[in-house]
Design a protein around this nucleic acid. Sequence first.
DNA 1: TGCAACCGAATGAACGTTCAATTAGAAGAT
DNA 2: ATCTTCTAATTGAACGTTCATTCGGTTGCA
Lengths: 194, 194
Amino acid sequence: MNVQLEDNTGKRVAVLNSTLTLIKEHGFHGAPMSLIAKHAGVAAGTIYHYFDSKETLILELYVHVKDKLALAISAGDDPEKPYKDRFFNLMINQFNFYVENEDSLFFLEQYMSSPFAKNFPENDSQLFADKVITLFQYGIDNAYFRNIDSRLLAPTIKGTLVAAATFQLSGQIVFSKEDIIEVISVIWDGIKRQ
Amino acid sequence: MNVQLEDNTGKRVAVLNSTLTLIKEHGFHGAPMSLIAKHAGVAAGTIYHYFDSKETLILELYVHVKDKLALAISAGDDPEKPYKDRFFNLMINQFNFYVENEDSLFFLEQYMSSPFAKNFPENDSQLFADKVITLFQYGIDNAYFRNIDSRLLAPTIKGTLVAAATFQLSGQIVFSKEDIIEVISVIWDGIKRQ
DNA sequence: TGCAACCGAATGAACGTTCAATTAGAAGAT
DNA sequence: ATCTTCTAATTGAACGTTCATTCGGTTGCA
């Protein structure tokens, strides 16, 4: 099965979490293997017991984070409810995940705009595809959305949510429940079939 | 005056352009000073005649690119025209700039999601503030937009355009003029006062 | 007893930066 | 015009540091 989803107390996960924290604090540059090891309470050599190289460490961290994101996003999804409700629930969950996991948000953004994403597009979370992409596809197939290319929808939506979450995390404002609904309405009004 | 805007044939600009190209091709990591020097047809030491360090090189490259972006975006802006027309012109220009300057788009995205943007938020293009931010502020002041925090507008819009441009650059599709209008309509319908 | 987990000092490559030396060009003097 | 002087521009080898990775050895559990 998927190694990332079990053994959450082991050194493997400690290394992943330390990498995430250090990248958030100092960027890709400021996260040398020696520091990751020290932060994780592990010897430098031990990291190489779990990961072939720093590159694979980053690649596997991406899937690890994206898996967590997928689980958080799809929480409370109820196929019985109207599609708009399901969509809003998904968006709210996504916003909350970003706000509550700043390190994950920062890492995902940096990973996505790095050569990693272009060189290894096949390296992605299966869980995310199953839980999230599926719901989008349902909306497309059933014509809830306006007639734009489906592959434009996801990045469009993500851009807005990330902007809002980043904005709140910068400490300038705390969005109320109503504010978040308003932001998501911007997305919904933009992409829904008019 | 602004050094970046004059002397466009000198070695300073050659270094900036080579840095841009190499970062686009190999990321921040794959652009060592020695390679930048070779690519620019310049000795390693010469770079330090124009830039204090690699860090300031990146910081100044950011302003340099943002200046070019500001000029491209505001091309053909006519204060006499209706606001919606001006807005659409701005958006179309921005989309075209991204598509025609993939290296700039890639660099801007990577810079924005790096520690640079957080550590030096004061390091930005004056030209961009004058030409672009001003027009947005006008739309906010005159209530063309729905009542969301103004600082959310820019990143929201940018997210969508970047998504579309990246999508076209991935080679999967070439947007027609009408397609672009459709994408911008998604933005406009989302943020306009309903 | 065997094997996987773990350690951390050692290694060597890569990198940003420095600097003593050289060249180019402009300004001034003759 | 020619020579002199001065400064800015340029060079690239050398330096010192940092970093990812290796490896011989140790621990602990089955």
